[in-house]
Amino acid sequence: MLTVDFQKSLEHFKLACQFQLDDEIMALVGSSGSGKTTLLNCIAGIVHPDGGQITLNGREFFKEGRKPMKIQQRKVGYLFQDYALFPHLSIEENILYGTPRGSDLSHVTELTNILGIRRLLTKYPHQISGGEKQRVALTRALAAKPDVLLLDEPFSALDDDNTRRCQDELFRIHEHWKIPVIFVTHRKADAERLADRVVRIEKGHMTEQL
């Protein structure tokens, strides 16, 4: 279970987040600059809250007054808004970057087949389209079998067919792995189709949508 209860001062408002997420899929909606990405960054450990705590399955990611857990130790799968694929590495090297040598890669092979990126493995990020980059970034976020999955607008550059294919695969992975998933989206249809819970953030305040 992911437990989040923290505050962080941003430039124009204070971000206050409080929720518990079982092995569910939660959609985060809200206008640009409302604090959605900052919430994901706090869970990943890229930025730290001012106070409060974040725990995952009893592991303390952050607690006020204590040294935060390192990003490397959190086992977070994170798909960044603009993919952040390593430009100097091939698609295959990008996907396998965080997987230990000799580990079982059957799930990666399956993902590359289902998401239709197998033919791209020898290419470099600048040689593929925006939609392909997004599918590669999703595969990379899942390759290291994370304990929590954070997706910042994972379907924004995909056409309808690929969106459906990625969502189906995400469903399947979620059924299989049973981990908390938080995804940011601007598309209501994505939130309704994929999420068990929909939470809106506006100027740092969270409200659950029923």
């Binding site: 990943a44 450990g45 890229i46 390192k70 990003i71 490397q72 130790q73 959190r74 086992k75 977070v76 799968g77 994170y78 960044f80 603009d82 952040a84 390593f86 970057y97 965080g98 990379r140 290291a144």
Partner: peptide
Amino acid sequence: RWENVARTMGVSE
């Protein structure tokens, strides 16, 4: 961002 992505994948500094 590139360094942070790499860190989320659990690799050392």
